[in-house]
Simulated assay, not measured.
Amino acid sequence: MSRICDLTGKTAMKGHNVSHSNVKTKRKFHPNLQLQKFYIPEEDRWITLKVSTSAIKTINKVGISEAINRFVKKGYL
């Protein structure tokens, strides 16, 4: 399974581990993804999405239907 948010499209970022002696080695910063089930009342069904925690906060604030519409308008879906 890929580590990509289904709604926002967040993926891993590249960066460096920096030691005390300032030696830099490559690493990845992975998004905080959670497997979450959401109920869509308009369609009367459950969907399972792998979403980032920031997307979960948005869904809790505005609702799943409105959140999906926002992400579609912004071009994430």
Results as ranks from 00 to 15, higher is better:
residue 25 T to S: 09
residue 25 T to G: 01
residue 26 K to V: 15
residue 26 K to S: 15
residue 26 K to G: 15
residue 26 K to N: 15
residue 27 R to S: 09
residue 27 R to Y: 08
residue 27 R to Q: 11
residue 27 R to I: 13
residue 27 R to M: 12
residue 28 K to Q: 14
residue 28 K to N: 13
residue 28 K to D: 09
residue 29 F to H: 08
residue 29 F to S: 05
residue 29 F to R: 03
residue 29 F to E: 02
residue 30 H to W: 13
residue 30 H to D: 10
residue 30 H to Y: 15
residue 30 H to N: 10
residue 31 P to H: 05
residue 31 P to A: 03
residue 31 P to V: 00
residue 32 N to S: 06
residue 32 N to G: 07
residue 32 N to R: 11
residue 32 N to E: 11
residue 32 N to P: 03
residue 33 L to D: 07
residue 33 L to A: 04
residue 33 L to W: 05
residue 33 L to R: 02
residue 33 L to Q: 08
residue 33 L to N: 06
residue 33 L to T: 10
residue 35 L to P: 06
residue 35 L to N: 13
residue 36 Q to I: 03
residue 36 Q to A: 08
residue 36 Q to D: 02
residue 36 Q to V: 05
residue 36 Q to T: 07
residue 37 K to Y: 09
residue 37 K to L: 14
residue 37 K to Q: 13
residue 37 K to E: 13
residue 38 F to R: 04
residue 38 F to I: 04
residue 38 F to T: 04
residue 38 F to C: 04
residue 39 Y to W: 07
residue 39 Y to D: 01
residue 40 I to D: 11
residue 40 I to K: 13
residue 40 I to S: 12
residue 40 I to F: 10
residue 41 P to W: 05
residue 42 E to Y: 14
residue 42 E to W: 11
residue 43 E to A: 13
residue 43 E to Q: 15
residue 43 E to H: 15
residue 43 E to N: 15
residue 43 E to V: 06
residue 44 D to R: 14
residue 44 D to N: 14
residue 44 D to Y: 06
residue 45 R to Q: 03
residue 45 R to L: 01
residue 46 W to I: 08
residue 46 W to P: 03
residue 46 W to L: 08
residue 47 I to F: 01
residue 47 I to T: 02
residue 47 I to V: 05
residue 47 I to R: 01
residue 48 T to R: 12
residue 48 T to W: 10
residue 49 L to D: 00
residue 49 L to H: 00
residue 49 L to N: 02
residue 50 K to D: 02
residue 51 V to M: 06
residue 51 V to L: 04
residue 51 V to D: 04
residue 51 V to G: 03
residue 51 V to R: 08
residue 51 V to F: 06
residue 51 V to T: 04
residue 52 S to A: 03
residue 52 S to W: 00
residue 52 S to E: 03
residue 53 T to S: 11
residue 53 T to Y: 03
residue 53 T to E: 05
residue 54 S to A: 10
residue 54 S to M: 09
residue 54 S to H: 08
residue 54 S to K: 14
residue 55 A to F: 01
residue 55 A to C: 05
residue 55 A to T: 00
residue 55 A to E: 01
residue 56 I to T: 07
residue 56 I to Y: 03
residue 58 T to H: 04
residue 58 T to W: 02
residue 58 T to A: 11
residue 59 I to S: 01
residue 59 I to C: 03
residue 59 I to M: 02
residue 59 I to E: 02
residue 59 I to N: 01
residue 60 N to P: 08
residue 60 N to T: 04
residue 61 K to Y: 12
residue 61 K to E: 09
residue 61 K to A: 13
residue 61 K to V: 10
residue 61 K to C: 14
residue 61 K to T: 15
residue 62 V to I: 14
residue 62 V to N: 09
residue 62 V to K: 07
residue 62 V to P: 10
residue 62 V to Q: 08
residue 62 V to F: 09
residue 64 I to H: 01
residue 64 I to C: 00
residue 65 S to M: 12
residue 65 S to E: 15
residue 65 S to L: 12
residue 65 S to F: 15
residue 66 E to N: 15
residue 66 E to W: 06
residue 67 A to R: 01
residue 67 A to C: 05
residue 68 I to H: 08
residue 69 N to K: 13
residue 69 N to I: 01
residue 69 N to H: 10
residue 70 R to C: 10
residue 70 R to N: 10
residue 70 R to F: 11
residue 70 R to P: 13
residue 70 R to L: 12
